[in-house]
Design a protein around this nucleic acid. Sequence first.
DNA 1: GAATCGCCCCAAAGCGCTTTGAGGTGACGG
DNA 2: CCGTCACCTCAAAGCGCTTTGGGGCGATTC
Lengths: 337, 337
Amino acid sequence: MTLKELAQKIGLSPTTVSRALNGYPEVNAETRARVEEAAAKYGYQPNNMARRLATGRAMAIGHVIPLTEHQMINPVFAEFMLGASEIYSEQGYDTILRTVDVNGEEDAYRELARRRAVDGVIVHAPRRDDPRIALLRELNMPFVMHGRPVEADEGSVWLDINNHRSFAEATRHLIGLGHSKIALINGLERISFAVRRRAGVEEALGEAGIDIRPDWIISQEMTETNGYAAAERLLSSGDRPTAILTSNIMTAIGAGRAARDAGLTLGQDLSLITHDDDLSFLSNAGDPPRFTAMRSSISEAGHKCAEMLLNLIAGESVSPVVWNSVFVQGRSTGPLE
Amino acid sequence: MTLKELAQKIGLSPTTVSRALNGYPEVNAETRARVEEAAAKYGYQPNNMARRLATGRAMAIGHVIPLTEHQMINPVFAEFMLGASEIYSEQGYDTILRTVDVNGEEDAYRELARRRAVDGVIVHAPRRDDPRIALLRELNMPFVMHGRPVEADEGSVWLDINNHRSFAEATRHLIGLGHSKIALINGLERISFAVRRRAGVEEALGEAGIDIRPDWIISQEMTETNGYAAAERLLSSGDRPTAILTSNIMTAIGAGRAARDAGLTLGQDLSLITHDDDLSFLSNAGDPPRFTAMRSSISEAGHKCAEMLLNLIAGESVSPVVWNSVFVQGRSTGPLE
DNA sequence: GAATCGCCCCAAAGCGCTTTGAGGTGACGG
DNA sequence: CCGTCACCTCAAAGCGCTTTGGGGCGATTC
């Protein structure tokens, strides 16, 4: 069923039908109602390809997902994207997805732009001197970043959580419990959020006059295994930390396992606070939850970024947004004995 | 840079340029080379929307991802999809993604079909009496299933691992180690693979003349928390199982945690074999790995299904494929003491 | 040297929609 | 009763590509 056929059925021109369906003011209410009714009756659905060609809008948003050095797929990206795609769908946009090797990002963006395959993109986890920012500006491609750029940057649009403050407060919380031997198992410090988290921890330690021990600040990909290995190392020393901050729940689970293997009980012999990305399939559950955490929802971030991007594409002006993660008291922290 | 402009630059007609670029035989090698060179030089990239409209092919594959009852995003879907999208990209197809509520699946497929937004779809995790199969046939939409239909079904195309055999052999392995008190923490039994896994376990137990204890067969969504809870229940009884089979690595991690909390050491006081979906970000690492496992790669499954679907779309005949998962000896199993 | 045949290449007609610019109709004022 | 003005509606021209149906031209055959 094409627009032309539908128009014929109801004895109108394609033009009028198109206008009626797209809400243009030039068509009177009665006609519009008639058209809409007929469209519903015949199950007419515009052919997207034709519409896209005619309007020049792709009606699609791109997500370019880089695999890490270890061909790893970051589950945070996946959850974010699935969250965002709900919003796109509502507004009639498709979500298009491209996975690329570490070095293929630039090509992927260029190709999407040249082919006009998408109207905008989401940039995940901005890095130090992120080349994607300049590239997308050059390509004149609207984008929203999930995470804030490391370097000050005028005019870019992003959603970030308050990583600095969040980790500073978590550290202060630990200090308030009497801890002074505090380690951080961080993400890769190429990435914006990890830089800020570290700074937050260091700020709080500094305030309290606690010396920073570089070997207690670990930067690595955030996996269960890495979390285990890092915590194992930290805990095997005679002079071990009494509290650990971890950057995501998988690392926390790994660190928790290492603690048990070392014969330590979380919340008693060792305190642990994690940032909790609140992945739907890996929840920090329990009442109180297993881990004391700074929590923020990834799928909500996906929703919000999607909205911001669509607004940006619509030509509205959009400002960066900072969310605060929520502190959740769990069972993994306790006063220093 | 459009096709027409490019044609003008090199003094040929758009027709010839199009044919040269698309590998049609009617154009001689020299001309083709000239065209390709010019295309590269001017950075010409065909406008996909126009091409799609002209050919009637969407050059896109759809993945409809249902959220579970708990709004949970299955990480296996995500990994599969990201794997599949690599193949699509190679062949110039886009990956389009749609998340839907449990009840929105049918609508989503119908809409994709009507709008001609995709050339085919992947169906994840076929269920009992899966309505999607009939629907997609009615819509005349090519599809490949990841997982095999529960009911015998002529002509459908799928990739599955040999769940029945795999779980039967794992069970026999445990029996060979002297275990007879064996529990299964399974996935939801609406879903094909869980049905088959259970059958495999029951077959092996039956062979060995071991009574099946219904309360030792647990069916639930496969999360860490659920795995913990299930194992905790199993282990808290005076008459506890000495071996547990789990259906995925998150469940296994949860069960492992419950074992520790119960004061049991995996591989000694309790044996555990898990099916390992080999998610890139949640690997069963170590040498030997932490868990004894039946392993199969989800991203490879994604690759393979993508290839099968593209072949199907190309009109080739494609047969179902069964893969065997690989048995990996890890540290979580040992002889019954 | 004319007829035949292949090889290359081209003009033009879509694909199904949006959108510009113009026309048709009835209501209204003079 | 005619001219004017809204208000609706329409015809037609794209959007950038593919593809059908020829046609030009040099080489081959008799």
